[in-house]
Amino acid sequence: MAGVASHSMGRDSESGLITGERLLDDVDRMIADAVRFGRPLSVAVAGLSAEGGPPDAADILRVAGLIQSGVRTCDLAGRLDDGMFLLALSGTPARAAVTPLTRLQQEVAELAPATSGGLRVAVGVAALSGLMSMEELVVRAIGLSDQAQQRGPGMMCLDPEPAR
Rank of each mutant, 00 (worst) to 15 (best):
D146G: 11
G10L: 07
P113Q: 09
T92Q: 04
D146V: 06
L80G: 04
D75P: 13
G143E: 13
A114C: 08
A112C: 09
D56A: 02
V4N: 03
V27I: 06
E161W: 07
I60E: 07
G38T: 06
P162C: 01
G3F: 10
G83L: 01
E21F: 05
P113L: 01
S129A: 14
S8C: 11
M156E: 00
Q68R: 13
P54E: 15
G3Y: 09
D12K: 01
D59Q: 04
R95W: 10
R103G: 15
T99Y: 11
R120Q: 15
T92H: 05
A32D: 14
I60L: 05
E51T: 09
I142M: 07
T102R: 15
V123Q: 11
L104C: 02
G154W: 05
M134V: 11
P93K: 06
A122Q: 05
G118A: 13
V139D: 12
A94H: 07
A109N: 06
T115P: 02
D82F: 13
R103N: 15
A46L: 14
R11W: 07
P160Q: 12
P40I: 05
S90F: 07
A141R: 03
M155N: 15
G16C: 03
P55S: 08
G38C: 05
P54Q: 14
G154Y: 03
P93D: 08
S49T: 13
G124C: 04
R39C: 09
L104N: 03
S90Q: 10
V27W: 00
L111T: 04
L131H: 04
M1Q: 14
E21K: 05
L80N: 06
G117D: 04
V63N: 00
V45I: 15
F37V: 06
L86P: 01
T99V: 15
R164C: 15
A77I: 00
Q147V: 04
